[in-house]
Amino acid sequence: MSALAPLVDGFGRVHRDLRISLTDRCSLRCTYCMPAEGVPWLPGSTMLSTDELVRITRVAVGQGITEVRLTGGEPLLRPDVVDVVRRIAALDGPNGSPEVSLTTNALRLPALAAPLHDAGLTRVNISLDTLDRERFTALTRRDRLHDTLAGIAAADSVGFAPIKLNAVAMRGVNDDALVPLVRFAVDHGYQMRFIEQMPLDAGHTWDRVQMVTQTEILAALRTAFELTEVPGRGSAPAELWYVDGGPATVGVIASVTAPFCGSCDRVRLTADGQLRSCLFARTETDLRTLLREGADDDALAAAIRTGLAGKKPGHDIDDPSFLQPDRPMSAIGG
């Protein structure tokens, strides 16, 4: 298969970042993601095999994808995650091998950080909504803060850098913990990033009134730190500020109040082989069926381009006609 033009949608956005969900399963039950009893898991027969997943990724890399982010659910629950990383990191496209990163809750990182690093994983993003054990247990419905902190330390010890810590800011839940989280990150050389809560929960209970906005996050941080905006954001989802003059930074992903759709370069592949042009898309492109019906690489590449051609200019969360995706975040992959 020969390389074609860059992966461009109907609005001229070039797509270089592929987010791949390795599984919809998770070892935590975060209140902003799923109910206490969990959600129905995807049937095993619908899940992409490793060969299928790597083949789609190879086609995408051949079309200009330069970064692959592995997500979930919790991607480290996939038994062959180290092999997945190794095989993707070895792919070669017109821009060379892709950078492979991973978003995780870190519970399995004490055992897997070194093998993943050796396999070619370059970076990790780790979810950490609070440093308080009781609050962590209430938020995740699991008493695992110690394991998360151990996972962060393991990632640090093998040389992953930068280590980014992600927290969903929630009113009356952890909005008083923003400053301690930044202090923890700065003290350890990590980058703290706060995320506006998005309408992607399985129970469809999201309420904008309860969401902590970027403006409120920055106001809270400025009570303790001097923040200076970092120029040159590009297509990154997080807007960055230097903390007390730098070099440490803090980021805010303001998908709701300050959307960055105009510079979006991301496309997503679910664990069951559906291509999504946007986190909030209401439609998907079925690559799994194409694969299993014998499609060649050119047909897969054409399907990826067709899926991207239908990408909307923005997610329209603020529009009265906005409808939350049927899939929760755990089934879409971040």
Rank of each mutant, 00 (worst) to 15 (best):
A271K: 02
E216W: 11
L240D: 04
L300W: 02
A236G: 11
G203K: 08
E239C: 09
V252E: 04
A271Q: 01
I217W: 10
M198Y: 09
G294Y: 03
R282K: 08
P259E: 11
A202Q: 07
A220W: 11
E229N: 09
L290H: 00
W206S: 13
Q197F: 15
G294H: 04
W206M: 12
P237S: 07
L240Y: 12
A224K: 09
C264M: 07
A271W: 01
W241H: 05
Q274V: 07
E226W: 06
W206P: 14
L221K: 10
A281H: 08
S263V: 13
V209K: 14
A271T: 05
Q210D: 15
A248C: 05
G294R: 03
A281N: 03
L279G: 06
E284Y: 03
R222C: 12
D298Q: 12
L269T: 03
V209W: 12
R282S: 14
A236M: 11
A219P: 00
T205I: 12
P237H: 08
D201P: 03
T223R: 15
L227E: 05
T249G: 02
E293D: 13
T289G: 02
P247G: 02
R276D: 04
A301H: 01
T270A: 00
L287A: 00
G273I: 01
A303K: 01
S235R: 13
S263L: 05
F280S: 12
P259R: 09
L221I: 13
I217E: 06
R268E: 06
A224H: 13
E284D: 12
D296R: 02
L290K: 02
W241R: 03
T257L: 11
Q274A: 08
A248N: 09
E284C: 06
L291C: 01
S277C: 12
